[in-house]
Design a protein around this nucleic acid. Structure first.
Length: 485
RNA sequence: GGAGGCGUAGCUCAGUUGGCAGAGCAGCGGACUCUUAAUCCGCGGGUCCAGGGUUCGAGCCCCUGCGCCUCUACCA
């Protein structure tokens, strides 16, 4: 017994724990070792249910999540990660001693059982237990069975309790897992190779964000956790891997909120010999495929707020949307007129905001968040996106789209810039004010010739939020970042 | 970083105008061999987030700190 832990625990908890320790000792004396080893089962609970046949003998293992004692018989529910299954324990079938020992079990204990299948009078499939064994004694109480665990802090810090007691939470994460499997399967079907590129980088490039810094002692140098894999994936395009993707974590040193976690999952896709329109077809197929396979529908939610993913999705240029919102003559107005108009619409803008800055604020605050149904916003101003190719017919814009769904940017895609000279100029002009250095090795790679390509980044957590109807990113990340205790 | 809200039993939550700290679930004892939020009888359980202040008296009012939530800021 670990006295230290008992003493450190709050008074109330230790009483519950002491009671369970006592039950554990009584079980030990009755010949039930409190922490058992492997237990051979005839299948997981979902499999046992699928192959249900009255009077068939089965062996199952799981956690007791409820126990209903009725004198000389007991009903309990066993939970194993695939299903919940009722078990029935009778004094007659089990014998005096094994039945008495069973009564010492607590909610939360892990047990292995063997018995025969039957259907109760109420019609529930049940295992009548003939033998049982203790697999792990639970020393701490589970959250309340009816209301579940509500305390948000505890839900994230002790996600295992959240998963045990809140079925809908389990369901969201199972859906997330299936979504990611379907993304991989879809991309494999189109000939893409999944690759892994450095998470620790000497320069954090491919996006504009503050990186996390760490120390590499062997080289006596600072390293950065990547903010994007983009520049390495493009090196692979140069190297002849002409359809690649990476589905993994990025790290950005930013605040925490409903839609931001400092480490988040990004899908970046690059395909040679296509362009932004190829990416458009790709993402529309990818998302509708995933929704259809995982959810079985393209309509999410009900009524006015329902999200309809049925293609084709709306497409509108950035300029059209801005004019629609602020008037057709917006781009003819002076900077001062635009500033005044934007402020009248409630935007908080600095006196020296640039024309592009004002317009972009209008886009982000007044337009983007109103775009509920899937919308490709195209032809963004070149200044905003240094890694994209300029439009052939207008050098002020680049060949890109941002896919916006439910007011959130889900996937930006570009026709990638493969001119090393222009790429250098645009990175240098952007690096000016920022501490971010230009990645020379990336530029060297481009000088060897990168095929024309379309590229895209998909915020996987946000996509999962959309498809699961989750309000917050931390509801789709198993262990979201929290302030240290 | 700024503004607002919240913090009470293991869990979910009440707590009136400042006047003895409450319920349900869980736990313990008892009854009960088809229950499923089992039921019935009885019992125990509190650093009211922490520290300070006002008051005869603080869970409640004031101040400071901590944690969480929402909005906001930062964020290709």
């Amino acid at each position: 017994m670990n006295d230290q832990q008992t003493e450190d625990a709050p008074q109330g908890v230790s009483e519950y724990r002491a009671q369970r320790m006592l039950n554990m000792e009584k079980l030990r004396e009755a010949g039930y070792a409190p922490f058992g080893g492997a237990f051979h089962t005839t299948g997981r609970l979902s499999e046992i249910r699928a192959a249900f046949e009255e009077d068939a003998g089965v062996r199952a293992a799981g956690r007791l999540v409820t126990i209903r004692k009725m004198g000389k018989s007991i009903f309990a529910d066993l939970h194993d990660g695939t299903d919940r299954f009722q078990i029935f324990v009778q004094k007659n079938t089990l014998g005096e001693e094994a039945f008495a020992a069973f009564k010492l079990l607590d909610v939360g204990d892990l047990v292995g059982v063997a018995g025969e299948l039957f259907v109760t009078r109420m019609g529930e499939q049940t295992i009548r237990i003939e033998e049982w064994t203790l697999l792990a004694k639970s020393l701490l109480p589970l959250p309340e069975k009816w209301h579940g665990l509500k305390d948000v802090d505890a839900r994230y810090r002790q996600r295992y309790l959240d998963l045990i007691s809140n079925e809908d939470v389990r369901e969201v994460f199972l859906t997330r897992i299936r979504i990611i499997e379907e993304i991989r399967s879809f991309l494999k079907g189109r000939g893409f190779l999944e690759v892994e590129t450095p998470m620790m980088q000497q320069q954090a490039g491919g996006a504009a964000a503050r990186p996390f810094v760490t120390r590499y002692h062997a080289l006596d140098t600072d390293m950065y956790l990547r903010i994007a894999p983009e520049l390495y994936l493009k090196r692979l395009l140069v190297g002849g891997f002409d359809r690649v993707y990476e589905l993994n974590r990025n790290f950005r040193n930013e605040g925490l909120d409903r839609t931001h976690n400092p480490e988040f999952t990004m899908l970046e896709i690059y395909q040679a010999y296509t362009d932004v329109s190829g990416m458009r077809e790709l993402i529309e197929c990818l998302i509708t495929h995933v929704a259809q396979e995982v959810l079985g529908t393209l309509v999410i939610g009900e009524g006015e707020d329902a999200l309809d993913l049925t293609p084709p999705w709306r497409s509108a240029t950035y300029r059209e949307l801005v004019c629609e919102e602020m008037g057709a003559d917006w781009y003819d107005q002076s900077r001062e007129t635009r500033l005044t108009a934007a402020r009248e619409r409630g935007l908080d803008l600095a006196e020296d905001s640039s024309e592009i800055g004002i317009t972009h604020e209008v886009y982000e605050k007044l337009i983007e968040r109103k775009l509920v149904q899937p919308t490709f916003v195209t032809r963004l101003p070149a200044e905003l996106i240094p890694l994209a190719r300029r439009s052939d017919d207008d050098e002020r814009t680049v060949d890109v789209f941002e896919l916006v769904i439910k007011g959130q940017e889900i996937a930006p895609a570009y026709t990638e810039l493969n001119d090393p000279l222009e790429q250098r100029a645009r990175l240098e002009s952007q690096a000016g004010d920022d501490a971010q250095a230009v990645d020379e090795e990336f530029l060297t790679a481009l000088e060897h010739g990168m095929p024309p390509a379309g590229g895209m980044g998909v915020g996987v957590d946000r996509l999962v939020m959309l498809l699961t109807g989750s309000e917050a990113i931390r509801d789709v990340i198993l262990f979201p970042q929290l302030k240290p205790r």
